[in-house]
Design a binder for these strands. Structure first.
Lengths: 217, 217
DNA sequence: CACCCGTATGTTGTATACAACATACGCACC
DNA sequence: GGTGCGTATGTTGTATACAACATACGGGTG
């Protein structure tokens, strides 16, 4: 078993959280798996205390189901859940794209431009493994301009839940090309200050995601 | 200090979570207050371990700010934050009201009717202290029909953040009358299967909340 | 043979003890 | 007198040990 030997630079609880989150997203931990605290703690080379912090955070974010006095469960995936998550995302992303465009200053536009340039480079270099990260970065950089930290946090919750689904299809290079092209289109509307168009393109961007998923679930 | 002496029926971490959440909502714990784990644990008559679970959950839900190796902070309130939270709520509640109405069966309508009846009784009996609870129950009962658990959870995050603001004005009996009247109107549209109208009334319901807040912040 | 209850086993929940880190203070040096 | 570093203090982070609860198994009883 490929237990990461690297000791954490920060708090173990944060490190464990990110590790477990990744395992859940890529399916190393799936629905029905037994989440035994002692075994997990041993595998991660930490004690149960920081592990429990990580688990409790994942539970409050919806990736795990908390059942008092019983083992935690990895939340099941389903087509209904994907539809649910994507519908919620659409509502919030449309709002955030609109406000972000309305409120963006020149430094905001530059920030998003830089993030998009990085993603474009990664695609050109064929670095598929960064795609989920780059995608998240682009939207985060853009929505930062909206100055809506609470709404953005609510969106982040839904985005996190959708990452397991995104993982299902983002390995296909063609999808990455589509995605980055759409990002460029959204960015153009954003930079031009056309909020309605940025929102419309964002809605379409999210919608295409669920459409692809419908063919896979 | 009125430390509740009642021992928890369930896990202490859950009890502490609810206790602290309430203290934050009603302002007994406010921005700038020192959240010292040892003192809080002593006050709640529990050890630091369950307390830390409660704190970490509140932090991941946005009521507290987590700064590694430093005391947690109660998240500040501001007019900008209220605008943010209410804008996000509007987007999600409109979506949920629409879907709830579309998907509701007769048993769903009956459930919401019962909840609304309870609230109406409480108002008539002058039990103001239940108002926040009843308000939450009504919307939860209705949105349950939407069968969108993830989107609903994202909304709950925003609703939780708004409860501190709601607390500012919900003590006024006149507001309660308005609120329950609006609930009846929303319920009528919901029961009639008129999703567009239910959504419109819901949007107005939320909007009135932020409008009242603008006069107070 | 079916059902129920007591017990054994294992897992989660909590407390206590210790280690690591951050901050503030004071002393020395410039 | 001001600045910087070392140390003291206090708080958070983690580990270990124990208690409480849930489940599964087995013996007893109808």
């Amino acid at each position: 078993m490929s237990t990461p030997a690297a000791p954490p630079t920060w708090r173990k609880q944060d490190w464990a959280y990110e590790q477990l989150r990744e395992w859940i997203i890529v399916g190393r931990l799936g629905y029905g798996d037994r989440l035994d605290e002692a075994s997990l703690a041993e595998e991660l080379r930490i004690s149960r205390i920081p592990l429990r912090h990580a688990l409790s955070r994942l539970a409050s974010e919806g990736l795990l189901i908390d059942r008092p006095h019983r083992s935690l469960l990895v939340a099941p995936m389903s087509r209904e859940d994907a539809e649910d998550v994507y519908a919620g995302r659409t509502a919030l992303e449309v709002l955030l794209a609109t406000r972000a465009t309305e409120r963006a200053g020149t430094e905001d536009v530059e920030r998003v431009r830089r993030v998009l340039a990085v993603q474009t480079e990664h695609i050109a270099a064929g670095r598929l493994e960064d795609s989920r990260h780059d995608d998240r970065n682009f939207h985060a950089a853009m929505y930062e301009s909206a100055r809506m930290t609470s709404t953005f946090a609510a969106l982040q919750r839904l985005r996190l839940l959708s990452e397991r689904y995104i993982h299902l299809y983002l390995k296909q290079p063609a999808r990455l090309q589509d995605s980055v092209q759409q990002h460029h289109a959204i960015f153009d509307a954003f930079a031009a200050g056309d909020g309605a168009r940025a929102a419309q393109l964002t809605e379409r961007h999210v919608t295409e995601g669920i459409e692809v998923l419908r063919t896979l679930l």
